[in-house]
Amino acid sequence: MAAPYHDLYTNHFANIRCSRATFLGFLSYTVTATAASANPAVQALSAGLHAAAGALGTSVVAREGQDGTSQTLTRSRKDVLRAMRVFVQDTNALSLVPTYRQQPETLKQLLPQGLMHLTKASATDFPVRFEAFAQTLTAHKADLGTAVGVKATALLTELAAATAAKDAGLKVAKETIGALGGQWTQACQLLWQVHCTALAAFWEHPEQAEIYFNYGLLPRRNVKKTDADGDTSTQP
């Protein structure tokens, strides 16, 4: 069992859990703070930090460019699910009922178990039921036109992208920066060096060592929220 104070001698930067971009912002703050330091020992570490931040910045830009999510994703999974439920209600009221008022059997083909089977479905069941609904809308395009089917398909595509982004975000939340290895581990070691050097320089007033780090840029840990659509996410 670890001693009660064991974690005081562990590089806590390697245990940070956040996105790469967030960590890069945290690192960049320390680059600027050390460069402006009046303490020669602390200031001397700024060059290495600057080089590490530059290398990691390139990798973050490349990663986001490959994913494309940072530029293209505009709504969360929860928001898309809500939009889909609204779409079902609007489509029923504005398209299905007026078109098939005199054809109840055809309307039943589109909503075989009723409107609430869709709108009141759980977050797990709703996407599957919505996909079947979208396929039926497309099959009846001769009566309904193509717009509703196209819109339903677009919502399914957006949901898939939002779900993938959410899953990636949860993976990052579980992944420590130190576990990424390579240049990320090196950056953690450099930050620890600044931490230790500053504490040695300001041991009489250790609070002065903290000015080289902006922990406010990092998300708070282990604060969870579950919404009505069943999403559980870590809140900053």
Rank of each mutant, 00 (worst) to 15 (best):
T34H: 06
L180T: 11
D167Y: 05
I177T: 05
L170C: 01
A228R: 13
N222T: 07
V61D: 14
E131I: 02
T163P: 02
G216P: 03
C188K: 07
V80H: 01
S76C: 07
F87V: 02
T138R: 13
N11I: 11
L45T: 08
A132D: 12
G145C: 05
P98M: 03
E158N: 04
A14F: 09
D79I: 01
T58C: 03
K78Y: 02
K108F: 06
L107Y: 07
E158P: 03
G25F: 04
V172F: 10
P236L: 06
G48C: 07
A139T: 09
T34A: 15
D79Q: 15
A160D: 15
R77L: 12
T157E: 13
A62T: 14
T153Q: 14
A173P: 10
K224V: 06
M1Y: 10
P219G: 09
L8K: 13
F26L: 04
L218Y: 05
S28A: 13
T34Y: 04
T163I: 01
L24V: 06
G54K: 12
A168N: 09
P112D: 08
Q183K: 14
L180S: 10
R17E: 09
A53H: 12
T163Q: 13
A93H: 04
T72H: 08
R85K: 12
L8A: 13
L24C: 09
N15I: 02
E175P: 00
Q208A: 00
G181F: 11
N39G: 00
R85L: 04
Q89S: 11
A21H: 13
V172G: 04
F87M: 06
L170A: 13
R129T: 04
L45F: 05
P104T: 07
E158A: 13
L170S: 10
S59V: 12
T136M: 11
L144E: 07
L73G: 07
R129C: 03
N92G: 00
Y100S: 03
A41T: 10
L137F: 05
E105C: 00
A134I: 02
L199V: 04
G25P: 09
H117Y: 14
N222E: 14
V80R: 00
T153D: 09
T136Y: 00
L81R: 05
A123W: 05
D143R: 06
Q183A: 14
S233D: 11
C18R: 02
A173G: 09
D229H: 06
F133M: 03
T10G: 01
L190C: 05
K171H: 11
G57I: 08
T74F: 07
V128G: 02
C196D: 14
S70D: 12
A33R: 13
A35T: 09
D229C: 06
A165I: 03
S70H: 08
G57V: 09
A161E: 12
A198Q: 01
V194W: 03
I177M: 14
A164G: 04
V60P: 10
A147L: 05
A209K: 00
S233P: 00
L8C: 10
L24N: 10
Y5F: 15
E64A: 13
N222C: 02
H205M: 00
N92M: 08
T22S: 12
F213W: 06
A93D: 13
C18K: 03
T32K: 15
L156H: 04
T72G: 01
V97S: 03
L155V: 07
T69I: 08
K151E: 10
